[in-house]
Simulated scan of single mutants.
Amino acid sequence: MKPRSPLQQGLVLLGFITLTFLAPAVGAFAPPGAWYQTLNKPSWNPPPWIFGPVWTLLYLGMAVAAWLVWKRAVQGHALRLYFVQLALNAAWTPVFFGAHQPGAALIVIGFLWMAIFLTLRAFQAVSRPAGLLLVPYLVWVTFASVLNFTLWRLNS
């Protein structure tokens, strides 16, 4: 395999960052809004301001992880899993906030969690640092899954 130039590597990293940050862009059409404000929430529900910074760091880590995997010769399966989990990530917000369906969103986030887990394992097999970069994402989505479940139970 021909070595990749620093320019090519930089452009691909920028591409992964752009593609990864497009996932939450779908959610811009389904903001939390008044419906979410009326929901019963647990006392441990994070304040709204925390989500932006947390997701920004998570998406950046995800993009770098995908780039690290791309830099390796054998990465097809791992990157396919990456894009599957990214699509599920993009689907959750319109289902939860847009359609006001916490139960259906719970199903989506369950599949998302499994896809992240499988992606993490596939990334780990290609690049240990790439796998480690996905650990905070899996932890956050675990927390988000519990929160999604709790919101569904409190408001069904």
Rank of each mutant, 00 (worst) to 15 (best):
S5G: 12
R72N: 11
V69I: 06
L81W: 15
T142F: 08
L81C: 12
V135A: 15
V74H: 11
Y137L: 15
Q75A: 14
R80C: 08
N148D: 07
P3W: 04
L134D: 02
N45T: 09
L60Q: 11
N45F: 11
H100Q: 15
P42R: 01
P31S: 04
L22A: 13
F143Y: 14
A90Q: 11
I17P: 10
V108E: 07
F117S: 02
A130T: 08
A73H: 11
F21M: 09
P48Y: 02
L57W: 14
T56G: 14
T142Y: 04
P136S: 04
A125Y: 02
L151A: 08
G10H: 09
H100S: 01
G131P: 01
V84Y: 14
I50W: 11
V26L: 14
L11R: 13
L39G: 02
A65L: 13
G103F: 13
L88N: 13
P129V: 13
G61E: 11
L39W: 01
A25Q: 09
P24R: 02
A115Q: 04
S156W: 07
L68H: 03
M62V: 14
A66T: 00
P47R: 08
I50S: 14
W44Y: 13
T56H: 12
K71Q: 15
L147T: 06
L68W: 09
G131K: 01
M1F: 12
H77G: 03
L39Y: 01
I109M: 12
P3D: 08
G103S: 11
W35Q: 00
Q8T: 15
F96Q: 01
L138A: 13
V64W: 13
P32A: 06
T142V: 01
P102K: 11
I50E: 14
N89M: 12
A23K: 04
A65I: 07
P48N: 14
K71E: 15
P24I: 10
P32N: 09
A28H: 05
V135C: 09
P94T: 00
T20M: 13
W44I: 09
T20F: 11
Y36Q: 10
G27H: 15
L68R: 13
N155H: 10
P31T: 01
I50H: 08
V54E: 04
L154R: 00
G10L: 09
L151C: 08
P129S: 08
W92A: 04
P6S: 12
W35N: 02
G10Y: 12
P6Y: 14
W55Y: 15
V146D: 02
V74K: 07
F21Q: 09
A91K: 08
F21S: 09
K41C: 04
I17K: 11
P102W: 10
G103Y: 05
H100V: 00
L19T: 14
M114P: 00
S156T: 11
R153P: 00
A104M: 09
W92T: 03
Q9W: 01
M1Y: 05
W152K: 07
P129W: 15
S156Q: 11
M1D: 14
G131M: 02
L112I: 10
G10I: 09
A87P: 06
Q37I: 03
Q9E: 05
P24H: 10
N148V: 06
P48S: 13
P3N: 10
F117K: 00
A34L: 07
L58D: 02
L147G: 10
P94K: 02
L79I: 05
